[in-house]
Lab assay of single mutants.
Amino acid sequence: TDVTFHVNGRNLHLKGADEELLRRIEELIRRGADIEELEKAVKEWEK
């Protein structure tokens, strides 16, 4: 799945995201995470 999140005026584009990653990103956004936290979560998922 390709999806782009718009967070605090910045874009986080995910290519090939699975349901697990999407749920994790949505949860972080609900908690008020900043873009750096979201990018870190994506990097951890990519490993």
Score class of each variant (00 low, 15 high):
residue 29 I to D: 00
residue 40 K to V: 13
residue 6 H to I: 14
residue 16 G to P: 01
residue 4 T to E: 06
residue 4 T to Q: 03
residue 12 L to G: 00
residue 12 L to H: 01
residue 7 V to D: 03
residue 42 V to Y: 04
residue 3 V to Q: 05
residue 11 N to K: 14
residue 28 L to M: 14
residue 16 G to T: 06
residue 37 E to P: 02
residue 35 I to A: 02
residue 20 E to Y: 12
residue 9 G to C: 06
residue 29 I to R: 01
residue 41 A to R: 07
residue 12 L to D: 00
residue 43 K to V: 10
residue 8 N to M: 04
residue 36 E to C: 05
residue 37 E to R: 11
residue 5 F to R: 01
residue 22 L to T: 07
residue 29 I to W: 07
residue 18 D to H: 10
residue 11 N to M: 14
residue 47 K to P: 12
residue 39 E to F: 08
residue 9 G to S: 02
residue 10 R to P: 03
residue 47 K to S: 08
residue 21 L to G: 01
residue 2 D to M: 05
residue 35 I to C: 01
residue 20 E to D: 12
residue 29 I to V: 06
residue 13 H to N: 07
residue 42 V to T: 04
residue 6 H to N: 11
residue 7 V to W: 04
residue 39 E to W: 09
residue 38 L to P: 00
residue 27 E to N: 11
residue 47 K to H: 12
residue 1 T to Q: 13
residue 9 G to M: 02
residue 7 V to N: 03
residue 7 V to G: 02
residue 27 E to P: 01
residue 14 L to R: 00
residue 17 A to F: 06
residue 30 R to E: 10
residue 8 N to I: 01
residue 37 E to N: 06
residue 5 F to I: 15
residue 9 G to E: 05
residue 20 E to V: 11
residue 27 E to G: 12
residue 13 H to W: 03
residue 15 K to V: 13
residue 44 E to Q: 10
residue 45 W to N: 06
residue 16 G to Y: 08
residue 25 I to Q: 00
residue 34 D to R: 07
residue 42 V to R: 03
residue 44 E to M: 09
residue 23 R to W: 09
residue 1 T to R: 15
residue 18 D to Q: 07
residue 26 E to T: 12
residue 46 E to T: 13
residue 37 E to S: 07
residue 21 L to M: 07
residue 24 R to G: 07
residue 44 E to R: 07
residue 11 N to L: 15
residue 8 N to F: 02
residue 38 L to E: 00
residue 28 L to V: 01
residue 21 L to H: 02
residue 28 L to N: 02
residue 23 R to D: 06
residue 22 L to N: 01
residue 19 E to I: 12
residue 44 E to F: 08
residue 19 E to V: 14
residue 32 G to Q: 04
residue 28 L to W: 06
residue 9 G to Y: 02
residue 4 T to N: 05
residue 31 R to L: 13
residue 34 D to S: 07
residue 24 R to D: 07
residue 24 R to S: 10
residue 44 E to D: 14
residue 3 V to S: 03
residue 17 A to G: 05
residue 40 K to F: 14
residue 18 D to A: 10
residue 4 T to P: 01
residue 27 E to K: 10
residue 23 R to V: 09
residue 3 V to H: 10
residue 41 A to G: 04
residue 43 K to N: 12
residue 28 L to S: 04
residue 14 L to G: 00
residue 38 L to V: 05
residue 29 I to N: 01
residue 13 H to G: 01
residue 45 W to L: 04
residue 13 H to L: 09
residue 20 E to S: 12
residue 32 G to Y: 04
residue 31 R to Q: 15
residue 24 R to H: 15
residue 37 E to F: 09
residue 29 I to M: 06
residue 41 A to H: 10
residue 2 D to K: 04
residue 39 E to K: 07
residue 18 D to M: 03
